[in-house]
């Protein structure tokens, strides 16, 4: 019977998508509304979250081939990618450094909890990479995963409005910015906005994910120094 939760996920999401589509506000996001619906349901009723989690494992499982399928929009944009290769690499490299350094320096003003800082480090990359990075550097994988999801939702909700506000209208630039800052959840949003945005977002997701994994030990070492001073 718990598999009714699987159907419930589909119905709630599709209903939210249908009802919210005429509303232009970034808060009218079907993903956010569905998540809040279920969080509310399990917080305020005696229903048990664990049943929901078990029933929805197929969706978690489907995420993996869906990530593999991101190669399709990437392939459709391969000419553009080749043409802009230098600009893409430069933007992503700087993006990773900015994402990590701004987050850590702001967090350092508020806390000197080393484990928390190390868990915040991979906040802009897709959760499997973030959890692996957190494990490797001595952070808390579960905390890293939670932060990653929150950051992804934040980017998916406000990302495109903010980019438009800052006159960043180039679809490729929008895509890269979403992928760098809000990983797979941002990429899912970018796919809805347009193919070009989606392709460049998945590109940034891959490049930034790999770069973060490579650079994490360096930043972890810096955190260790900063917290011991």
């Amino acid at each position: 019977m718990i598999y009714l939760y699987l159907i419930a996920t589909v119905i709630v999401f599709l209903t939210a998508r249908k009802l919210l589509s005429p509303i232009k506000s970034p808060l009218a996001n079907p993903l956010l509304v569905s998540i809040l619906f279920f969080i509310g349901l399990f917080s305020f009723t005696p229903l048990i979250y664990q049943d929901y989690a078990t029933a929805n494992i197929p969706f978690i499982w489907l995420l993996e081939p869906a990530v593999v399928a991101l190669a399709i929009p990437l392939f459709c944009q391969v000419k553009q990618i080749k043409k802009q290769f230098k600009a893409i690499i430069i933007s992503c490299c700087l993006g990773v450094v900015i994402a990590i350094s701004t987050c850590i320096s702001v967090a350092l003003l508020l806390t000197d909890d080393k484990i928390l800082l190390l868990s915040l480090l991979p906040k802009s990359v897709t959760s499997p990479i973030a959890m692996a990075v957190a494990n490797e550097t001595g952070g808390l994988a579960s905390l890293a995963a939670a932060v990653v999801i929150a950051v992804g939702l934040l980017g998916a909700l406000g990302g495109f409005s903010l980019l438009k506000l800052c006159k960043i209208t180039n679809p490729q630039a929008q895509g890269l910015a979403m992928g760098c800052s809000a990983h797979a959840i941002g990429t899912a949003k970018a796919m809805e906005v347009g193919n070009e945005q989606g392709a460049f977002s998945s590109l940034a997701l891959v490049i930034c994910g790999v770069l973060t994994a490579v650079l994490a030990p360096l930043f972890a070492w810096l955190i260790t120094i900063m917290t011991t001073i």
């Binding site: 802009q84 230098k86 600009a87 893409i88 430069i90 933007s91 992503c92 700087l94 993006g95 900015i98 994402a99 701004t102 987050c103 850590i104 702001v106 967090a107 508020l110 806390t111 909890d113 928390l116 915040l120 906040k123 802009s124 932060v147 929150a150 950051v151 934040l154 980017g155 990302g159 903010l162 980019l163 800052c166 960043i168 209208t169 180039n170 490729q172 630039a173 929008q174 890269l176 910015a177 979403m178 760098c180 800052s181 809000a182 940034a204």
Partner: peptide, 24 residues
Amino acid sequence: TIIVSSVISTVATLISVGWLYQRF
């Protein structure tokens, strides 16, 4: 800590990556 650092960092990353790419 999580909210303040994530919001500031996400905003900074979004704008800087978008701006850099659009510029270059």
